[in-house]
Design a protein around this nucleic acid. Structure first.
Length: 265
DNA sequence: AGGGAAACCCGAACGC
DNA sequence: TGCGTTCGGGTTTCCC
């Protein structure tokens, strides 16, 4: 399931292959994939656009075009693939862009949760996002102050993309374990030292995920192997790698949550 | 404001 | 083996 490190992996893998190419045609295979604008307008507008660059903001893939930004959010099961012209269509393809130089860009998404936007106003898509955890703006001081201003459980707050943009369920569990903080703890109960530890844990966990090309639980295509290095995620019933206590699983804010009851108070 | 629930989806995993 | 049920993941939206 694509979280930030998986999205980063996709961006890095497609960027060198599509930058500089022109979009010749668009085949929209499931209308609801498109969040904005209408399918007809989308096709009109995207044709003839040249791909200038591919970047990432939080979990949004940002394809910079001549006059627009094409944003793709992979949500749960999405993937973006480059294929040769004439390649067989795949079962869960939602959008296929025909590119110059006989290439195709396919957005494939089994569970149909992923969405695509075409706009010349980045704010309309990204406007509400919080800071980027791997940028300089994300400091321990900022985190401490931001946590103080809220009275929410730590994990749901960290998952809130308007608070901090990029953490998903897996990496949040991992970061909280590394920082020795309990997911249900009140955000304003975290002291400066703990905020510092949490900041460092988040950066470390995300960087580690990127280094290992993502976790790929049911997202096998990229072959990420971070899943072999989970500290707590999916390890309920097994021993904590730090203290040997049995990892527990319960729900916080409707999300499956994994915790070492001894390390995380 | 924050929390809970439901909705959107499918396939894998599970129970019988 | 086959069939029905449950689960999970990211995000939005609605309700209390």
């Amino acid at each position: 399931m694509p979280e930030l490190p998986e999205v980063e992996t996709v961006v890095r893998s497609i960027r060198p292959h599509i930058t500089g190419k022109t979009i010749l045609d668009a085949d929209l295979r499931w209308a609801r994939t498109l969040a904005q604008p209408s399918p007809k307008k989308f096709k009109e507008q995207v044709k003839g656009q040249k791909i200038k660059n591919v970047t990432r903001r939080a979990k949004y893939i940002d394809i910079h075009l001549t006059d627009f930004h094409l944003y793709i959010h992979l949500r749960m099961s999405g993937d973006v693939q480059i294929r040769d012209m004439g390649a067989q269509k795949e079962k869960h393809d939602r959008l296929i862009l025909t590119l110059s130089q006989k290439k195709l860009l396919a957005f494939n998404d089994t569970r149909k949760f992923g969405r695509v936007w075409l706009t010349n106003d980045p704010q309309s898509v990204l406007g509400k996002l919080g800071p980027e955890p791997l940028e300089k703006e994300f400091t321990a001081e900022w985190l401490y102050n931001a946590l103080q201003k809220k009275k929410r459980q730590l994990k749901p707050l960290l998952l809130d993309q308007t608070f901090l943009a990029g953490l998903g369920n897996i990496y949040t569990d991992e970061a909280l374990h590394l920082a020795k903080l309990h997911p249900a703890a009140a955000s304003d109960s975290v002291n400066r030292k703990q905020a510092q530890a949490l900041k460092e844990a988040i950066v470390k966990i995300l960087s580690e995920g990127i280094k290992r090309n993502g976790a790929s639980i049911d997202w096998v295509y990229r072959g990420g192997e971070y899943q072999n290095h989970f500290r707590v995620y999916g390890r309920d019933g097994e021993a904590c790698m730090v203290c040997g206590t049995i990892i527990e699983k319960f729900y916080v804010g409707q999300r499956g949550t994994h915790v070492c009851p001894k390390c995380q108070r």
